[in-house]
């Protein structure tokens, strides 16, 4: 995938729409955050541009990036193998760089359902999928998914049969996990872009399956 295509993809979303201010500042810590930002900028520790660029970079990374990776793995067996062997290298072929962590792809199969958590904080493949959803950072998810994973999956509407292994991956070190969901039935003949549209963020965390194609 060329860099040109990569940039082109980014032009389509509305990711650069300016964020809207909140209604009201309602906590001491919000005031503190504003104060810290102002002081750090005035002292030249960071610039306003530095902060803005970081926010724009975050906004530019979305689950669509991961969906492209999964769709390619579904359609290209050699890429799938490279992804499972060395995910950092494989995603860089599509123009996605993992800047701080080692990406590890884990594949869901007919016999094995994988789901990812970070019980200690909120480790997540941010460089590929963007910021984690709020529930991923919640105490309820972090506490319970290692204790009663099938019950938690059911709360997402995902029911895993008893004969299928459920495997929970707790991201406790520098590895970041990308679940490659199973390719849905009835998707023979679909192209990579159509397949990518079926790959949801939740399916790449493992709390859901990829969507069924529209018939």
């Amino acid at each position: 995938m060329s860099e040109e295509h990569h940039l082109h993809d980014h032009e389509h979303g509305s990711v650069h729409a300016p964020p809207q201010p909140d209604d009201k500042v309602h906590s001491y810590y919000q005031i503190l955050g504003i104060a810290l930002k102002e002081l750090l900028i005035e002292k030249g520790v960071v610039s306003a541009d530095d902060v803005r660029r970081q926010i724009e970079r975050r906004d530019s990374i979305t689950p669509a990036n991961g969906a492209r990776v999964v769709a390619k793995a579904w359609t290209d067996p050699a890429f799938r193998k490279r992804l499972l062997d060395d995910a950092n290298g494989a995603v860089s072929e599509l123009g996605f760089e993992m800047t701080t962590a080692k990406l590890v792809a884990i594949e869901n199969t007919a016999g094995e359902h994988n789901v990812v958590v970070c019980t200690l904080c909120s480790c997540y493949p941010r460089d590929l999928l963007g910021l984690p959803p709020s529930w991923y950072k919640s105490r309820a998810y972090r506490a319970r998914v290692v204790r009663e994973p099938r019950a938690v999956l059911a709360e997402f509407g995902t029911h895993v049969p008893e004969h299928v292994v459920v495997r929970v991956h707790d991201s406790t070190a520098d590895m970041r996990f990308l679940v490659v969901p199973e390719r849905p039935e009835g998707t023979q003949g679909l192209g990579e872009a159509e397949l990518a549209a079926l790959v949801t963020r939740d399916s790449m965390i493992g709390v859901a399956r990829a969507s069924a194609p529209n018939r």
């Binding site: 964020p19 909140d22 919000q30 955050g33 902060v51 803005r52 970081q54 926010i55 975050r58």
Partner: peptide
């Protein structure tokens, strides 16, 4: 505000 803190 949350995005500002994340960016900072």
């Amino acid at each position: 505000w949350e995005k500002q803190i994340d960016g900072l």
